[in-house]
Structure formats: structure tokens, C-alpha cells
Design a protein around this nucleic acid. Sequence first.
DNA 1: CGCCGATTTGACTCAGATCAAGGTTTGTGG
DNA 2: CCACAAACCTTGATCTGAGTCAAATCGGCG
Lengths: 246, 246
Amino acid sequence: MSTLKRLDIDHLKVSCKQCNLRELCFPHGMNDEDLANLDAVVEQPKPLHKNEFLYRDGDKSRAMYAVRSGCVKTMTESANGEEQIVGFHLAGELLGLDGFGEGHHTCNAVALETSSVCELPLDDLEALCHKVPGLQKQMRRIMGKEVAEDHKMLLLLGKMTSEERLASFLLSLAARMEERHWKETEFNLSMPRQDIANYLGMAVETVSRLFASFQSEKIIEVDRRHITILDMNRLKVMVGERDTDK
Amino acid sequence: MSTLKRLDIDHLKVSCKQCNLRELCFPHGMNDEDLANLDAVVEQPKPLHKNEFLYRDGDKSRAMYAVRSGCVKTMTESANGEEQIVGFHLAGELLGLDGFGEGHHTCNAVALETSSVCELPLDDLEALCHKVPGLQKQMRRIMGKEVAEDHKMLLLLGKMTSEERLASFLLSLAARMEERHWKETEFNLSMPRQDIANYLGMAVETVSRLFASFQSEKIIEVDRRHITILDMNRLKVMVGERDTDK
DNA sequence: CGCCGATTTGACTCAGATCAAGGTTTGTGG
DNA sequence: CCACAAACCTTGATCTGAGTCAAATCGGCG
């Protein structure tokens, strides 16, 4: 492989400035100058294949990551070997914040399908925080959002019935599709039923039965991993976001 | 009230430098100069009475808080009015990070008993981050720790049995007592059974029955809110931190 | 003392787990 | 292109941990 060829490959890097996930992702609200600074430190490792690890529990925490395409799940492992999925990260979403505490990751990150990520090395990020005013605030914003989301999940696992949990999951996906300007009522699940069940703290069979039940109630249409939401309002009623009438 | 008198009251403020929670709390690892800088921005509002709110869901997020004495619980509220306690914060522990995301708090913080807190206004904190190198990293460390802890709670709520949850709760308290150089095997619970149950995602009756069962198994001794751990090892076995033998 | 909220205890019930079996889709190698 | 295996998903039957309901007891406190 010639030097020239390699340079070409390097230049395949997509800059944040051009990225259409820009406003959803880390660069949210940055001006052109800040973006240029950010672009200088963002690395783009080669894509992850399905089931490949981005990082493992215990690995030194070297960077924060943004999903560019695909979907990555993060999961913690208990002392007795059980796993709990703590998040599904879609394009434009960040992960790796868990490692900021002790300097090493406290969960595993695995690609659910072929996925590409951007990498923001922590050292560069810190230097950048000194250079770009407001970036520090951005970091706080991002982590605060993560904390607030985790609290929502605690509520889901602690207080909701299985039906409410699945409705809540579908609504969350729909909202995220919407953010990405994709159809909010029609999308594909990147994860198997088993992972949905694990994430929501229930058995696979329960997920399967609930999908069947939602379908027979004409709330959604399910075809393997393809979901069509027919009655968003009913889902919202289930989680208490709407009164029972209209 | 004379000016002199007021000055005296102002001077009742405990400086971080002198605080015996220093190493557990926000100032962990700071040198004297940094501590002086920190002391200049820390405010100490008057103590909270039992059941008084430190902040409410929706309040503008003005500060981060550290518990100086007592115990503060934080809880999220669901759309249909159910509450989930997401944390109990002991002396030296921080709260309020949830508000960093959207600029307003996403949960309620309520004192479980008469408690005093230190307040670190966000604006001052941000300014300080520019002045004190390393403080920024400290912020990241703190938030990362919070994220990692929340993930542990997701695992607890998603995968553990009631018995494992309660054992895990007791071990967490014991470890935190130890950190504070208090007896790790003997302590008072600052929260009623109802709050323990809510936090652990179970019914009060189940908490009560498990305490009774742990007691009859000679694992702990319970007298109202006073807990004595008799067999730490058995608790660790329950959560998988030890093999069943010794 | 008598009331009130917190806690405990017992009896019963049920949401959802587990067990079991069969169906469908995807990937692989020949 | 087909055969076969391995995942993945669904459905039915049964079981059970923990919730719910009801009632008694305890502890503080005015």
C-alpha cells in the first residue's frame, strides 16, 4: 500500500462540521471555530462488527465515544455473572462516561450490528476544554443528561409493570427516531428480543407475548424486528403521559 | 441584631480545609491553595428539617450540593405520580448532578432527618474550574462515579431477587460507614422501611419479612432502625462477592 | 392514657418467571 | 442451490416470589 493510498484513506474521515448528526451529538450548538478545534482531536477507528467489543469492563478509560452509525449496547456484569444491559446507543449518542469515575470502564460496550464510532481521547478533550470556553459546560450537560436518563430507568425497573416498560421502551425509540428525522412510527429494532428483555428486566417470553398483545390490540404492528406504531396515544396512556380519553 | 453579631454567625461557616469529610467529599485530593479557592465559593444555607425539600423536580439547577450532616434522599416522579427513590446521600456525598443536563432538576431532594448541606453555585464552580487545574477532572470523576453507581442500581433492580437487593443495600451502607471511620457493623438507618422498600423496588412487607428472616438466620440484629451486622460474609455470599465456603 | 403513624405478621393472589415444545429465519459448507 | 445447524422467536402450561389485603402490635408523644 503506497503512502499516497494511505493518506487517501485517512482523508475519508468525516468531519463533525459535515456530519448530519452534528446537532444531536457532542458538537451540539458549537460554532465553526469550535467545530474545527473538535475535528482536530476526533478519531475514527475502523468499524465494529456485530458482537465486537468497543471496550470491556475494567479497561482503562481512554476516550469518550459517539456512535456514528449502527447501535452499541452497554452492559454491567454482577459479581455472580449476570448481565444487565444499561443502554442502547443509537447514532449520535455518546457512551463511555461510566469510566470517568475511577479511570477504567465499569461496563462492556458491544456492537449490536456493524457500527462505526468516533473517539474523543480524554486527554485531548481535557485540553480542548481549556481552549474552548463552554465546552466544559457541554461536558456537564452531557453527563447530567446521562444521570437523568439513568434515573428514568431506575423508575422503570423499580415501579413499572412489564406492559408499561415495553410501552416506555417503544416511545423512547420513537422519540429518538424523530430526533434523527427518521419516521417515528416505523423503525427496525437493532437488538434481539433477548436484549430487550434483559434491558427491561423481564423474560424474553414476556416481551414476545406483549408484542403479540400490542399487535392484537392494534397498537403496533410487528414483523420480526420491524415495528410500526399504529396508535402512539395508547402507548402514552399506558405510561401515564396522557389521560385515558384522547 | 448587631452587625458584629451577624459577622459572628457568618463565621460559623465550616471551611472545607477543616472539615473532617474533606477526603470523602468534593475536595478529595486538593492541596491547600485549591481548598482556599473552594472555600471562597462554598455556601452553607441553614439546616434542612426532616421532610424539607432541598430542591424540587423542575427547579432551576443553581448549584451542586454536598451533605455535611444527616441524610438526604433524591426521588424521581413518574408521569402517573409514582415515586422512585434514586439515592440516599450520606454526609460527604454529593447531589444535584441530575440538573446539569437541562439546567433544571429532574428529581426531588428531601431531608430524611435534620441535615445540613454545603452549596456550590454552578457559576462559581465553573469559574473555579478555569482557575484550578484539575478541578475539571474532579468534576468528571464525580459524575462518572454517579453514572457507574446508577448502573449498579439498574443491575440490582433488573436482575436481583429481593433477598439479594436487601443484602446489597446493607453492604453498601456498611462500606460507606467504614469510609467515614464509623463502625461498619453497627449503624442506624435514617430512612423508614417504606423508603428502603421504594428504593429497592419492593413492598414494605417484604423488607420487613427479610429483616426478620436475616435476624433469625443470625446474619444481622435489628432493633427498630438500629442494625448490627453479625455475619458480613453471609451477606457477601448472597450478592455473589464470596464463594459459599468461608 | 389514647391516638397515630410505622412496623410486623399471616393469608391469599397474581404478574410474570420458568419449563417445554415447536416454528422460522439466517448463515454455512458442500 | 440445497441440507443442516444454530439462532431467534413464539406459544402454551405450570409454578412461584413477592405483591396485596387485612389485622395486630409497637413506639412516641401530646
